[in-house]
C-alpha cells in the first residue's frame, strides 16, 4: 500500500493541471478543432520515420552506385 502514496501528490507529464493548461494553450494559439490537432500531431509522428527511411534508402542507393 505504501507504493500508492507515490501518486498521492502526483504531478508528472500527465498532471491534470498541466494537461488542461496545454489544451487551452493549443486551443487559444491555434484556434483549431481537436480533429485537426490530432491529424497535425499524427503527421509529426509519421513524418519522422519517413524522413529517416528516406535518408537510409538514399545512402544505400549511393553506396550501391559506388560499389
Amino acid at each position: 500500500m505504501i507504493l500508492l502514496s507515490i501518486f498521492r501528490h502526483a504531478a508528472g507529464p500527465g498532471d491534470p493541471v498541466l494537461l488542461d493548461w496545454i489544451k487551452h494553450k493549443i486551443d487559444s494559439v491555434l484556434g483549431l478543432g481537436p480533429e485537426v490537432i490530432v491529424i497535425g500531431l499524427g503527421l509529426v509522428v509519421i513524418a519522422m520515420p519517413v524522413a529517416i527511411m528516406a535518408v537510409y534508402l538514399t545512402r544505400r542507393t549511393s553506396q550501391g552506385e559506388q560499389e
Binding site: P13, L19, I22, K23, P34, G42, V44
Partner: peptide
C-alpha cells in the same frame, strides 16, 4: 516525445 504524445493522447481521448 512527451511534448508531442501527451497532447496527442489528450486530443485523441477528446475526439
Amino acid at each position: 516525445g512527451a511534448l508531442v504524445l501527451v497532447p496527442l493522447a489528450t486530443y485523441l481521448i477528446i475526439t
